[in-house]
Every structure is written in structure tokens, then in C-alpha cells.
Design a protein around this nucleic acid. Sequence first.
DNA 1: TTTAAAACATGACTTTTGTCATGTTCGGAC
DNA 2: GTCCGAACATGACAAAAGTCATGTTTTAAA
Lengths: 233, 233
Amino acid sequence: MKDGIETRCESCIVRQFNSLRAMSKEELKKVSDSKITKTVKKGESIFEEGDKLSGVYCVRGGVSKLSKLSANGKDQIVKLATKGEVIGQRSVIAEEHANLSATAVNDMEVCFIPKESIVNTLNTNPNFAVEVLRHMAHDLKEADDVIVNMSQKTVKQRVAEAFLYLKNNFGEDKDGFLALILSREDIANVVGTATESCIRIISEFKKKKYIKTSGKKIGIADERGLQDLAEGF
Amino acid sequence: MKDGIETRCESCIVRQFNSLRAMSKEELKKVSDSKITKTVKKGESIFEEGDKLSGVYCVRGGVSKLSKLSANGKDQIVKLATKGEVIGQRSVIAEEHANLSATAVNDMEVCFIPKESIVNTLNTNPNFAVEVLRHMAHDLKEADDVIVNMSQKTVKQRVAEAFLYLKNNFGEDKDGFLALILSREDIANVVGTATESCIRIISEFKKKKYIKTSGKKIGIADERGLQDLAEGF
DNA sequence: TTTAAAACATGACTTTTGTCATGTTCGGAC
DNA sequence: GTCCGAACATGACAAAAGTCATGTTTTAAA
């Protein structure tokens, strides 16, 4: 992780997507003065499970995977955080060590915001607190939905869902391939399965024309078909 | 669900366990004046997935399961809420329809608190907002951990964990049986497996002396053994 | 450009888990 | 007490998923 170019939060577009937009001008100025912009290269870690975080990270660009190592040695990816999302919030608010590790999936630019600015604003600006609460409520709903999918859907259904999720949240390039490129292993870790099983299912989907591939790029060829599959038809 | 006996929030012990303790005397008085105490009999529903909630429910006694129906017709139990917990909070805060159904696992007493009292206090009392935020942060961590367990542990490990969880969170009776009695089907729905698989594993655990049973009561006989099993040894 | 490591891919086999069928036990209504 | 339905239990089998082995292709570094 390396320090990067200075920018002001006040004029940062990314802020529109996250709870920082509920801050007052003065609060934002304080945050901006105390923040540090950093670049994180693909594969590098932002923080590790168990770390004591002294602040949060606002994602300006790139994508981070939030994952947790399980006893069997596999890294379950719990969430993918992209432009506009704030990571590390939960640990800072709960005053706990990080429960998840954050790793750059591709080159990233993040702003580190010391926790004091966040905690102070939380304690004095109810608008901000409620805004953060709303975001957390949303994350919790998503997590609950993931629990249901993990426990009730087959691996094949979950892989299909993962592709639809990637399309809806990260979009496609001009040739119709998913804009976010993940390794087969990462896909397996999102879905919660063995890498080999994941690869096998990708091969099957390709054979059945649900998807197309080109190198490690994957494109959705039959969205309706994938949807039906994910729903269990 | 039936209306019950009047009590005042100000003197309710249950409040100590939840975010209501961050309310001021006056705020609490308003809540107390607007709340309705209800009794819910075992098996009855408090609210259903998709309902528009007009308030939250504070659990005074008994246990509620929060579950979601999946496409395959099974009801995944996402959380068990007990004395002191507030349910429906997430939906009210996010201003969304309920994502989960709440059903009484045994006879319950709950207080319905209209959302206005909650929302007003959130917007004006940062202490309360932060307190709610902390609880939500805790729930989110738990949900993340469940995701990892669901995707990386075997059914056997998850059943073992479920028993340890029930012991730690609901305790045991004088004879060493788990105080919270769940049907085999409910256990299966917590663990995310077929009822038959769950029953089979219970039989196996009994044979191997990890647990003892008496009717539908289950007692932990070898906690260390169950822990090792849950960790994958 | 060569080359070694990592990522991708597939076959063969095992283990885990789900499903269907069937039977038993238990608890409450009558 | 008798009866009925729900919950519990178990066997037999099928399907899903994991593991191990092995080979191929990419990628990135020397």
C-alpha cells in the first residue's frame, strides 16, 4: 500500500454513494484534512482479519474482496466492495478487531480516514449516524440473503447467481464480458465451493451456452437461462 | 397475537440488554405510552416476510425464529431472538418490507413499539443512534460468520456448532438438557440441511455419546468432543 | 525468449448429503 | 383410554460435491 495523490473529499464524487454525504461542510473538511489517499496494487492486503483498525477505508477505485479464513484453510469471500463503499466501518463502530480481511482484487485507490473523525461525527451528527445505520441495515439484509442462498441452493445455482451478481454490480465491457475479472479460485471462494467444482460448472455452462469465455474473461450469453437455473428450474 | 398486561418500559429489565437503554427518560416515556404489550403463542407468527412493519418488537420473554423461505420450499432460520432483543429494527430503519418472517418458537411476550418513536429518537439522539448502530454491527458480524460456516463446514460440523450455540445462548435446565427445545425440523432449518440428515446426525451423536436425549430434549454430554468436531478434528 | 510457477482443466473415485419409502413413537383431541 | 396426525427414525438409493491425480495453458519474471 503506497501513499497517493492528494484530493479533497468535498469534491470527491465517490462520496455521493456512501454515508459521508450526510456530513456537514465542516465535518467533511476535518475528514479531508486527516485522510490519507493510498494506492493498493492487485493482490495486496488492505487489512487482515484480527487487525485493530485505526480508521476506515473509502474506496475511490478498484475492487476489494472481504474474506475470512475458515478452519479447512479456504478463504470465504463474504463481500466485494467497490467504488464508493466504505470498508472497516463495522469493526470501528463495534470497537472490535477486524472480522474479515480486505484484499485488492485489482489495482485500487483508497482513502484512509482515521476513526476519530468518524466516531466524533457519529456522536454529534444524528443525520450521519442514521445514514451509516441505513447502509449497515442494507448490508445486513444482503448478508441474510447470502445465508439463505448458501444453505439452500446448490453449487450450480450459486455459480449462476454469482455471474448475474457480477453483471448487475460491476457491469460488462463493450464485448459483453463481465467487467470484473475474477480468478476461478476467487469465484469458487465467493460461491463457497472447491475450485475444481467451480471450474467444472463453468465448463458446463459454456457447453450449454449460458456463458462465453475468452481467457479468464467470462460473458453472460443467456441471462434468462442463468436466472431460471439460479431459481431452481 | 393477543394484547397483554401493561408494564412500563422505564422499569423493564429487558431494556438493559438492548439499545433502548440509550434513550433519555422523556424519550422512554413516550415509547412506553405508545407501546402495546402482546402475547404470542408457540407457533404463531409475529410478522411475515414481505410485510410492511409499522414498528418494532421488543422481546420480553420467549424465543422467536427469524427465517426466510427459499425457492426449494425450505425455511432457513437465520437467527433466534430472545429476551431483550429487538426484532424488525432492520426493516424499519431501511424503510423496507420485512426480509424475514418472525415466528414464536415457544410462548412469547413482546412489546410492539410504533416506528415513529424509534425514528424520531434516532434523528435527534445520537447516543441512541450509535447504540442501535453497535447492535447492528454485532448482528452483521454474526451474519458474516454464519456465511463462512454455512459454506465451509460440513452438516455434521454445523449441527455440532448449533448445539454449542444453543447451550451458550439459552443455557441448560437442572438435568443438563438444553433449555431451548427445538423440533428436529427447526434444528435442520437452523443448520441448513434436510430434516432426515439432521435426525441421522443426532442419532450418530447420541451413539457416540456426544449428546444425550430424552424425548425431544437434547443435552450436551461431551462438550469438548463437540467442539473438536465443529472445528474439524 | 526462455522458463518456472500459477492458473486452468478434466478424469476417476470417494464422501457427503438429499430424497423417497416406510415404520415407529408421541402428544393431544375426543 | 382410543385414535389420529405430527414428529421422529431408519434403510436404500441417487445426486451432489469434494479430493486426488495429472495434464495443459497462461502469465510473468529472469
